[in-house]
């Protein structure tokens, strides 16, 4: 069954732009990205859109559909009614390059700031031995496809451009948590998380979790445990005293 769907797509660049109305054919089983491609093929050949896999695995096609941050390739047309106007805009926390394409370099800069995995010095690659229970928590975070929808939705930077230098966003705080929970990692990134990556800015309002297409429990499993780890180091007088008196090593 096909029908002519009503679409409003943001067209423009950093100097300005607007929502343009289009009527595009929609076929059964299609996703928003299919329609955007048809629009590009039939009516707007200069429409800029980023995509790669069309399978929800490359993280390229992030956009906002009816105001909600989503992957275009994972948003089924069947979730909308036929007379509904569907609005597609670029992600709104990043600078727009053109049409639906934004400049996500902020994320790569933040990624580079996270110190990488540090195995014990006396362990050669190939000698790593880990138990499944020890790596399970980190594995959830490895599902991330770097679509940056969480970064885009996080109000800390979405609503406050000025916080970008101080705050790395959920994706990279989660990366820090992943390494902190890794059984073979020897570095301590707790102070770094708080001081360089702005963990304290997060007010655990869970929008990152809400929009993550991989369904990662970013807030509950990464950010809050990370806040607890930082609290243990920085804001817990009992732990502080215990460490002073008994010079406990980390478990």
């Amino acid at each position: 069954m096909s029908y002519i769907g009503k679409f409003r797509v943001w067209r423009g660049d950093a100097n300005g732009g607007s929502l343009e109305d289009y009527q595009v054919e929609v076929n059964e089983g299609e996703v928003v990205l299919d329609v955007i491609h048809r629009l590009q093929a039939t009516q707007a050949p200069d429409l800029a859109v980023r995509w790669n896999c069309k399978a929800g695995k490359c993280g390229s096609c992030s956009a906002e559909i009816n105001g909600k941050p989503r992957l275009m390739c994972m948003t089924r047309m069947s979730t909308f009614s036929e007379d509904e106007t569907i609005t597609v805009t670029p992600m709104r926390a990043f600078s727009v390059i053109r049409d639906l394409v934004t400049d996500v370099s902020y994320n790569y800069e933040k990624a580079r700031m996270v110190p990488s995995f540090q195995p014990p010095k006396d362990l050669a690659p190939g000698e790593y031995r880990m138990q499944q229970v020890d790596v399970e928590r980190s594995q959830e975070f490895r599902k991330c496809i770097e679509c940056f929808l969480c970064q885009n939705t996080c109000h800390v930077i979405r609503d406050h451009e000025e916080n970008k230098p101080a705050f790395s966003g959920p994706r990279f705080l989660m990366r820090i948590a992943e390494l902190e929970m890794h059984p073979l990692d020897t570095a301590d990134r707790r102070d770094l998380a708080q001081d360089e990556h702005g963990l304290g800015y997060c007010n655990i309002t869970k929008c990152c979790t809400e929009v993550c297409p991989e369904g990662i429990h970013i807030t509950d499993n990464a950010l809050i445990p990370m806040k607890e780890r930082v609290a243990g180091r920085r804001y817990d007088p009992v732990v502080w005293l215990g460490n002073k008196l008994f010079r406990r090593n980390r478990a």
Partner: peptide, 20 residues
């Protein structure tokens, strides 16, 4: 000026397009 409609972000006439 610092939020979603701050250039060089994509400017829109409304703060949110969420209609739910």
């Amino acid at each position: 000026e610092t939020g979603v409609n701050a250039p060089p972000r994509a400017r829109l006439p409304v703060p949110t397009l969420r209609a739910d």
